[in-house]
Design a protein around this nucleic acid. Sequence first.
RNA 1: GGGAUCGUAGCUCAGCUGGUUAGAGCGCUGCCCUGUCAAGGCAGAGGUCGCGGGUUCGAGCCCCGUCGGUCCCGCCA
Length: 589
Amino acid sequence: MRFEQRTVTCGFLRPEHAGQQVVLNGWVNARRDYGGIIFIDLRDREGVTQVVIDTSHRPELDEQIRDVRSEYVLWVKGAVRLRENPNPKIPTGLIEVLADEIGIINAADVTPFEIVDDLGTNEELRLTYRYLDLRRPVLQRNFLIRNKLYQITHRFFEEEGFVEIETPVLTKSTPEGARDFLVPSRINKGRFYALPQSPQLFKQLLMVSGFDKYMQIVKCFRDEDLRADRQPEFTQIDVEMSFITQEDIIALTERFVLQAWKEILNYEVSTPLLRMPFKTAMERYGSDKPDLRYGLELTNVTITAGVCGFSIFSDAVASGNVVMALNAKGCGSFSRKQIDELGEHAKKYGAKGLPWLKVSGGEVTGSFVKFLSDEHRDLLLQELKAEDGDLLLFSPGEWERACIISGALRTEVARRTGILDGVAGTYSFHWITEFPLLEHSEEENRWIARHHPFTAPMDADVSLLSSDPTHARAIAHDLVINGYEAAGGSIRIHTNDVQQTMFDLLGFTREDADAKFGFLLNALRFGAPPHGGIAFGFDRLVMLLCQTDNIRDVIAFPKTTSGLSLMDGCPSDVDTKQLGDLGIALTRQ
RNA sequence: GGGAUCGUAGCUCAGCUGGUUAGAGCGCUGCCCUGUCAAGGCAGAGGUCGCGGGUUCGAGCCCCGUCGGUCCCGCCA
């Protein structure tokens, strides 16, 4: 099959090229047939160029392109000329190519969906034919942005003196944290590798080795349930440094984000970024990754609520719980049905109900107003700065749970009132710091690490480890962008004894700790430098840069929420020979 | 593990309280048309209502199961 190679792409030509002879290669985006004259829009990843077939100019072409339909692959040779009727909607809209010769490079069946941007097609079909979906300009743009971020990342960290080192993909399964994807070992039957949830331990060991500044763009794997912003395999920018403090990590991260947003979006991130302790974030926004593009802050009304006479509140407070409240500004017009829907939303996060008050025309109504004295009612209104037309939503409960419920209501109210739409296209960057080091697992009835068990406690809180572990804070930092956890890291424990103490606290026996993390404990005995780092969720950064809230829009071949790849059909059955080689027998088909 | 929601033509959807031959737009096929770019006109083809079972005189619609998509809670050190 003969075809002439392109001399320009489909996005290249402009009026100054008029008169030039060119060759285009591309896909048929659309065909408009007028009998004597036919227009073909030819598309490649750079753009679309209109090709004109004029039968009075080249009568033989009419027969040649008779069969040409959408998504055929063509080569076209012809002269560039200015259009009679320009199309201002596309960059090449001032010119067209008058075809002298056309060849069909390959035919195409009718595609299962049209290759257009404003596609209503459901994702199931798009993922089944992902290679066609990826022809759509909107997705092509996302992957060009993704590529830009790869390049910026490598350049930035290179210039900062970092060295990229690859860590293993076949690693040891560790019990803490997310479920591992396991890989059976054929040579060592009955034993398994695990795919890394992150290269955490390897990068710490590289610090012990003296590599000082390490980075890697690396695939990580977590066998947990999926979400709109979560895939089982994902990419992170993994960073670790020695002889540094938390300030160095924060400053480095800010320089990186500044550069990425500048180069890709020409957006000026104003640094230094706001920092907020975990506790403040929870109290004011009900989240450890609050979206700060809008206010709508929460209020802790525990003191007033405790004595207001409403037993749900006073009982909660009497048992050591709190009452958080949200003033949903201007939502006083919400119907009973809408308020009930908010209540249902709150219940998803563990609320038992949703007490509310409404201020309308100087009148206060609500689910529990009859239990309140005028004095306590007015006090609550005052604390919440309630004005006419406001809706007040209350969440009694255990502190963190009550905050989370109120925070979920905050987000939902922002969505329903159009506040979220109003901030689309803007960015808010900030740090959350001073995370609790530990949290208590009811399920396992022991302490578990909130971040991971290698995170160092804040110097001021080291003594709390033995006396009051709940209140020990970690030297940890999360970068939050528009309500997404975009990066997270910490200063690590770099001495054997503190790491051992941590494992003790987490309920590991010495033997356990040794069996699972002995190699780390050993390494910390041989002169480990103080170190720390951060890991960026690469896919989430790309999501934010592309302004999509679906992680599948920035991953070329993603899985569905049940972990399937609809295109190639994995995970799939394997034959018994393969299983036999691995020494594996299935208990159930 | 749990909740919500969806599955009808190639695509997007409509289809009332269970009742005749399941509709529309786009796409597709054919013909016409020399300036369109969401081309237009005329004609036409195209359906196992995701799958299996049940209730009923009768099921796209009701019930049970199952498969798949999406969103969320739990989970995600």
